[in-house]
Each structure stands twice: as structure tokens, then as C-alpha cells.
Simulated scan of single mutants.
Amino acid sequence: MARVEDLWVRKDRTRTPVYGKGMRYRAEWTPPGENKHRKSFATKAAAMDFLAEQVTGINRGTYVAKRRKVLLADYADTWQKNQLHQRQSSRGQIAPKFKHYILPSFGHRALDAIQRADVQEAVGEWSATLAPSTVKVTYGYLASMYKAAVLDGVVAVSPCVGIRLPTVEDVAVVPLRTETVQELADRIWRPYRPMVVFCAATGLRSSELRGLTWDRVDFDASMISVDRQLVGNNSSAPEWGPLKTKSSRRRIHVGAQTMQLLKDLREGPQGAGDVVFHSSGRAIMRGTAGEAWRDVRKKVAGLGDGWHELRHYHASQLISGGMSVVAVAHRLGHKDATETLKTYAHLWPSDDTRAAALTDGLISLVAHDLPMTGPESPQ
């Protein structure tokens, strides 16, 4: 840590000032682990004020030596390439947020020129057209990038501090009715109909469903193994990646009618990469699955936003059948029972009626004590 004594101002004795006409005072300071730095000023007061800022930065650990200006767009590109810990599907969601929202707001500006007020203004602009949840995710990517920039020493501090975000309202899940799911299975594009039936019966995530391969189907035990998911965009040469969480790795039982569906599919044409569900031999990618869902929404009233609605439907059937929260969590591959309750607690039958029955009549009044017309206190 530099000491104040190490930082000083002296009158510049050089006949021709280094930093231009009128520069009469030069500040000199030595940051920890670096050589001596110098900067000239016209007045002693300006030099002293500048040194005070350097001391404060060094003492707080926010000191950043003078560097070449870095555009946010350039650093954002580097930051995205370094997100190796993210799943491929997650990285695929980061890029559009930068392309459509963050870069149009800040991409042309230097990374260290953006202030907290600028970030708050951008959040306000995003909120005018985006859902609160999308604004929150977009801002989260920007804040994470700036956190990395501070660690890399590119900026001294992050402007993503104390930003007010729009409130994300918790909307209770409203499961599809069985008749709606049946109509969905009857009217969606033909290659996707087995997917609807299987997803309703197993509750798999879309990427798990589309990535299921025959070597993960145990016909003898009537079980399937879920240990990977479909990633990428190449339908003729599908790729697989890790699941959403470690808890997503599971083996689940499949009912007799659903197993018969798999046996029938096994006898038919096979898909690329040995996937169970395919369209004309090609694996079904996220985009095409979404397109099929959007098309059938025009035909079937009451459908939600996507394939996740079938997962909600499956969960609702398990809950109405009396399964415990732990069993439902395992079946769905949730991180823990808390995640399950957070999403579906309102679907479990209320214990309030049972509580009333358990306590009703335990304490009673003698019949001749009614009505209560006597004195308020003993005589």
C-alpha cells in the first residue's frame, strides 16, 4: 500500500513543460508494484486534488493505472468468449441480450465512461418494451461483465450499483387441463405428436425430451435415464451437453401405455444420432419445436408459452394424485424440494379443512348453559 508520504507535488523546474504550455506543477506518485507516475498541472491546487484522488483509490483498492480506452463492445465480446463455465444453451441466451439491448445502449462508449445514471436510464428504456424478468436478466449480464472488468483492472469501479429494477411479479402456474393437452396432441404437427404424449407422461424438460436416445431407454425395467440434453443447432448431427443441474440427472419409471408408444417408435424410421423423437430423420432443435408450438397455439385455446406447459401439467397430475413434494422434485429433476414448493405449492390440497375437523368439538359447552343470559361475573 502506498503511503501519503510517497506522493508529493513539486514545482516543475524544467524550462519547457513536458505536458504543454502553462503546466507549472508536476504530481508524482508511486502505486504499489509499479514505477513512478507523473502528471503536470497548471496550478498546485489541481495537482494536490489529483493526488488526493490517487491516494483514495490506492487505499480503497480501486486504483487503476492509466490505460488505453476500451470500448464496451470490445470488452463484451471478450467477456462472452470467456464464459466457459456456462452451458452452451446459457451462452446462447447471453448473446442476444447483448446484441439487441446492451450494445445498442452502450456499445459505442468507453467502458470507464459509463456512470451509474447511464445504467439506470438504460434499464428504464428497456422496461418500456421488455418484460420485467427480461430486464432483470439483461441487467444481470451487464453487471456480471462489469464485475469481471473490475477484477481485470480495466475499470476502477462498476456503475452497476444500487440500480432500481422493475418488480417481477410472481405469477402462479395454471396447469393445462387434460382435454386441452389431448387436443394439443391431436392438432400439433404430426412429427411432434409423440413428443406431446411422452412429455405429458414424464415431465421432461424440452431439451431432455428432444435429446433422449434409444440407449437411454430400458425396455425391460420400463425406465428411462436422463443424464444429458440436446444442445447446438445442427439437426443432422446433434450434440449433447450437461443437464441444467446435478439433480437433473435421474432415472424415472414410464407407464405401460407410454412404453408401448416407445416400442412403436422403435419399429419405425430412426433419427439422426439415434434420437427417439425426430422429424423426417432430423433431430428436433429448440427453434423448430418452438415454431411447432406457436403454430398450434393458433388452433388450441388456452395453451401457454411453450413446451414447459406440459411439464407443469405433469407436475399437477402428480400432486393431485397425492405424491409427496420430495417425490415430485425427483421426478422433475428439481434441485431440491424447495424449488418444487416455490413453483407448485399452491397446487397441493390445503390442510385447512382437515385442521378444522381435527380440532372441532374437542371442547364444548353444557347445553343448559345456552343462551348466555346470566350476569357477566359470578355473584
Rank of each mutant, 00 (worst) to 15 (best):
E53G: 06
T78N: 03
S133L: 08
G302P: 10
G153E: 12
M259A: 04
F198P: 02
R164W: 10
Q270I: 02
I94G: 02
R228W: 14
G361D: 15
S222F: 12
I58P: 01
A355N: 13
G22F: 14
A42I: 02
G281H: 04
F106R: 05
P175V: 09
A65R: 15
V55E: 15
G153M: 06
L310W: 11
E376C: 00
K244I: 01
V157D: 13
P378Q: 11
R266M: 09
N59D: 12
S248T: 04
K69L: 12
A301L: 05
F41M: 02
E125F: 07
L103M: 06
Q93M: 13
H330G: 10
D336K: 09
T343K: 11
Q83D: 04
T213I: 07
D264Y: 06
T129I: 07
M223W: 10
H368L: 12
V181F: 00
G20T: 08
G124C: 02
N82K: 11
M372K: 14
T343N: 11
L370H: 07
D6P: 01
L176S: 00
I188G: 01
A283K: 01
E291G: 06
V137E: 12
G333Q: 03
T30K: 15
D77G: 01
A329C: 03
L332I: 01
I102G: 04
E34C: 01
Q86S: 10
S207M: 09
R294T: 05
V119G: 01
R67L: 09
Q120V: 03
D186N: 08
R294P: 06
C199V: 07
D295M: 11
H253M: 09
G271Y: 06
L72E: 04
K246H: 07
K69R: 15
S324I: 03
T373C: 00
Q182D: 10
G33R: 12
M285Y: 06
N59Y: 09
V174P: 03
Y146F: 01
V135Q: 11
A46E: 15
R250Q: 07
R3V: 01
S350E: 14
Q83G: 07
P132Q: 08
P238R: 03
V154S: 06
L142H: 10
P269S: 08
T202Y: 14
K298V: 02
I319S: 09
D336N: 14
A117N: 12
V217N: 08
L265D: 07
G153R: 09
H314L: 00
L370M: 14
Q115H: 13
A149G: 02
T202Q: 10
K136S: 03
L243S: 03
G268E: 05
Q86C: 15
H334N: 05
D118N: 06
N59E: 14
A46K: 13
D215V: 00
H314M: 02
